[in-house]
Amino acid sequence: MKSGKQNGGACIELRDISKTFPGGHQALKKVSLTVRRGQTVLVIGPSGSGKSTLLRCICGLEEVDSGSIRLDGRELTGQPGLRDRMRPELGMVFQAFNLFPHLSVLENLTLAPIRVRGRKKAEAESLARELLLKVGLADKAGARPAQRSGGQQQRVALARALAMNPKVMLFDEPTSALDPEMIGEVLAVMRDLADEGSTMLVVTHEIGFAREAGDELIFMDEGEIVEQGRAPDFFERPRTERARLFLDKILY
């Protein structure tokens, strides 16, 4: 467990958000959730439970049908202009990394700070090098992403999101596309971030990580939040039948 960390006010507040895809599949059913500043919230659940859709709705890649999304108290839904300005405040890390293959590792990190935040090139590069050091890839600045292993690519992607200094980091199954031996290096960086007091919302299949890394655990199924609480409580004393079924499947 993390210690000595102060949780602040609400960073992300979702109230009753719903999303139905064209074709009729309802991915989210009136989901409400609060992530406080400095808090790490983990989301687990079977595939198709709406976890990824939840993240994509928060960062704006999907539009919600109804409900409210607040970032630092400011309502984002129905405000295209504000929503646009807030995009870089939500740092997204994708399952497939989505690094820009035509740019070097360093350029992947400096592109948006220069083009979106208007940083000077030298300033952006020194920040990028700091972040690469932090994710353990200081010597890979000049490489092309495609030449790196999956674990290294995902750490670059993480650093790229951090380079925008977002208010909250969103992780969409960041280790699901990785070979098993590379999962640890990505989780280690995420754990460091959590310990430093970054605000994080993490969708994951890594049960070991979910058990001990987060401040709060959310279990989703069929587009709903079924259980919410501290991780040890959930794993030792699941309150619902659906959670028990899920745990039976993944633990044994």
Binding site: N98, L99, F100
Partner: peptide
């Protein structure tokens, strides 16, 4: 790749920048 558009969008690049850069 759709992921390229999405990553660029999430970083705050404008539509024009997503195309150009």
């Amino acid at each position: 790749d759709r992921g390229q558009w999405e990553a660029a969008w999430c970083l705050g690049l404008s539509r024009l920048q997503q195309y150009r850069l």
